[in-house]
Amino acid sequence: MATQGRRDFLKSLSAIGISTIGVAGITPSITKASPENILSKDRMGVLVDTTVCIGCRKCEWACKNAHDMPSGSIDDYENESVFDNKRRPDYSALTVVNKYQNDKTGSPINVKVQCMHCDQPACVSACIVGAFSKKENGSVVWDESKCIGCRYCMVACPFQIPSFDYHKALEPEIRKCDFCFDRTAEGKLPACIEICPVEAITYGRREDLVQVAQEKIKNYPERYNNHILGETEVGGTSWMYMAGVDFKNLDFPTLGDKSAPGVSESIQHGIFSYFVPPVALYALLGGVMWISKNRDKKEEN
């Protein structure tokens, strides 16, 4: 600080402090988009009853059609050889049905897989540019115009759902079920719900669906395991599952009830609470710098 007076130094420090607090004042309005603020009581959901599903895969076909993806002939979907391997949704299919052996009854269990549309989505919290958002009707959708393709959503998702088109050099997309956001906006049903011939998937207010599921379990305790997957997992999901066996046997991850982004958000907001910790660190370092300078000067004199 040889060329710099003590007053200048302090002045500059306080100027930085004030401008940083200014930034902090704006920030809360930007971060307001966190999902809990827009969770509607009337948000929709789907109840998947795996004991009803017959594994016809018509939902796969309807989904592709609804999203302008190559779907082929509906007759091809009767081919059961795809069940030899467990499949996951990817850029070519937003939903897939897998078949599991049932040791209890002998008849196979079919499980439709797609995005669960969490109430506290990890992808929405993680996305660097806020390309994911939880909508009022419960769906979690992706905004192509913002996405930069960093794939952090895929790291964050507890159900490992978002997929990426690795073989496109330009405009590769993050793809996942969007709960037929465009169709429901027009008042139509999601494509898979509409086509399902056995009503294995029920669309309705999430609150009502939880009640429906609870009643089913009460009325048919021998048919269902007493567990609605998605009712409380990771803070609740829009899509919920019922089954006659433990969900572990159906390849569902075992998850707690705490929301997936909870811990990281509280760490993050702790470090940045109104920018106090960074500004305090700045002031502390400034003080140390100033004291060390003066100490050295005194020693020289």
């Binding site: 920030t27 919290s125 540019v129 806020g130 913002k146 930069i148």
Partner: peptide, 13 residues
């Protein structure tokens, strides 16, 4: 994009 599309909840941001 992160310069204009902000997500204060995102650690990556």
């Amino acid at each position: 994009h992160p310069l204009i599309f902000w997500n204060g909840n995102s650690v990556l941001f």
